[in-house]
Design a protein around this nucleic acid. Structure first.
Lengths: 129, 129
DNA sequence: CCAGATTTTGACAACCATTTTCATTCCGAC
DNA sequence: GTCGGAATGAAAATGGTTGTCAAAATCTGG
């Protein structure tokens, strides 16, 4: 039965940005879903393992998840105010990482790249308010 | 009294790669240092705030620290076997991050970039052993 | 439809890195 | 010497995450 997992996945899809397991749990409960925290964690892990959601770590060590549109390799441009996230491709970065790695004799190169900023709406609000 | 902080900094400098607070603490105790875990955490935070050590998060959420040679902005190429770390500059990546950000109307762009791989010694050992 | 095997679920407890608390120690100022 | 503020560290608290285990749901063959 993947009903719960689907429900978690759906909840995640309704969000613009990255959400923590606790967030997802709270939101599902708010919407009347009958689900336990443990199950949310398990569903999230399962989805992450299957590559159906992306995971990253907040500065304070919390794992946050996001259901991304593309299932191909990509990176994220995240607004540090509202969390709005844009998926970006970066062929240049991929090549750079490979080059840097082999240059120093490293093999099996992987990399993590995340870009943070303040999105236009948030910077407008900041100016206005 | 920055004696403790210096001691922590020194311990970090003697390490090739990134070390966790607990690692640093254990190492210092091994070498006979009389210091508490709390102080190690505080020293590490202070050093990180001052930009004298670099911090990053392990996959399992642990904070790891490293005393880097350059105090200018740089990234890391980390061996996922032995932890050996090479500091790398990446002007191309800096430009790319800026471009991606402004392209989507984001301002105050920052980024995190880490490259992981298997270093030559470790891959040799893997073949040999 | 039923009994038994298997999987999923979730309340609760355990974990563990990190932080907070707070009493003590240290050190310079006077 | 001693007053005051900063540093220290043992112990307790915090909080996200994971493990436990029994109950519930689902599947299986009869």
């Amino acid at each position: 039965m993947t009903t719960r997992r689907d429900a978690v996945h759906d909840t995640l899809r309704q969000s613009e940005g990255f959400r923590s397991a606790q967030d997802v749990y709270a939101e599902m409960r708010l919407h009347g879903a009958k689900i336990g925290l443990t199950t949310v964690y398990r569903a999230l892990q399962a989805l992450a393992d299957k590559g159906q959601v992306d995971v990253l770590r907040t500065d304070d060590g919390e794992s946050v998840y996001r259901a991304c549109a593309t299932d191909t390799h990509h990176h994220h441009l995240v607004c540090r105010q509202c969390g709005r996230t844009v998926e970006v491709a970066g062929p240049a970065v991929e090549r750079w990482a490979e080059a840097v790695g082999s240059e120093h004799g490293f093999t099996e190169i992987t990399h993590t790249v995340e870009v943070f900023g303040t999105c236009s709406s948030c910077s407008t609000q900041a100016r206005t308010g």
